[in-house]
Amino acid sequence: MSLDLADATLAPSRTTERPDATPARERKTPVVAITAGVTIASLIAAWAISAHFRLLPALFLPSPVEVGRAFVMVARDGFVDATLWQHLGASLGRVFAALVGATLVAVPIGFAIGASRIGRGIFDPIIEFLRPIPPLAYLPLMIIWFGIGEPSKILIIAIAMLAPIVISTAAGVKSVDPDRVNAARSLGATRGQLLRHVVLPSTLPSILTGIRIALGAGWSTLVAAELVAASRGLGFMIQSAAQFLVTDVVLMGILVIAAVAFALEASLRWLERRLVPWAGRN
C-alpha cells in the first residue's frame, strides 16, 4: 500500500477554475526515470565487471552474457523438457486461474466486511488468520488435502491473493462518500440501486488496487506453489536448475520472473487508468 500513498501525493490535484490546466509535473525533467536508469545500468555494470574479472567463481556468479545465452538456449531448445515459453505459460496460467478464483471469493467477502458488522465479525478473523501465514507453511496441508495436481498449486497462489483483495475491497466499501449515497437516496434510489449505481462504482478503484497487489503477492508465491510435482513452470525451472547447479538458468529465471511481475503491474496500472480514470481526482 505504500506505493499507492506515494502515487496519491503525486496525483494531480483538482483545479478549481482551470479545468483544462495540465499538471506541472508533466513538463518537469523525469528525474526519477533518469535516476532509476542510472541505478540499473550501474548494477549491471558492477555485475559484468565482477563476472569478467572472476571475482567470484562462475558457478556463483555467471556473467550477463552467460545469462543472456541461457535465455536464448532455454527459449529455443528448452530446459527440463519444456521451453521458456511453456514454463512461462504454465506459471501464468496458474496465476490467472488463481486470480479469477480469488477475485470471485474475495470481492463478496470484502463487501460483507465493509458493509455489515456481522459480516465483519464472520470474515475478519479468517482473513487476519490467513494473511500472515507464509505459503510454504500451508503447502504440505494443501498437498495432503488436495493432492499433488494442479488444484493444490492454484489454491496456494489463490490463498495468497485472497487477503489483499478482501482488505482493499472492504476499505473501498467503507470509504464510499456518504454524501454520494445520500444524493442517490434523495433522488429516489432503492437499496439495490444504491448498491449497483453508487457503492459498486465507488468501490471499483479499490477492487482494482487490491487485484494489482494480489497479482504481485500471487506471483511471488510461484516458486513455493511449483515446489512439489510440477513438470512445468518458472518456479519449477529455477528449482531444477538449482539442483543441477546451472546458475545461469537460475539467474535468468529470476530475471524473467521480475520482468513478468513488472509487466503485470504496468498492465494493471494501465487498466486502472482506462477503467477508473476518476480515481484519485476527487
Binding site: 454524501d179 444524493a183 462504482p201
Partner: peptide, 19 residues
C-alpha cells in the same frame, strides 16, 4: 420517513458521481 425525490438536495461538496 426518509429521503425522497420530492425533496432534492444540493450538497456543499457537490457529491456528483465521477464515473
Amino acid at each position: 420517513e426518509g429521503p425522497g425525490a420530492d425533496r432534492a438536495v444540493v450538497f456543499q461538496n457537490d457529491a456528483l458521481f465521477p464515473w
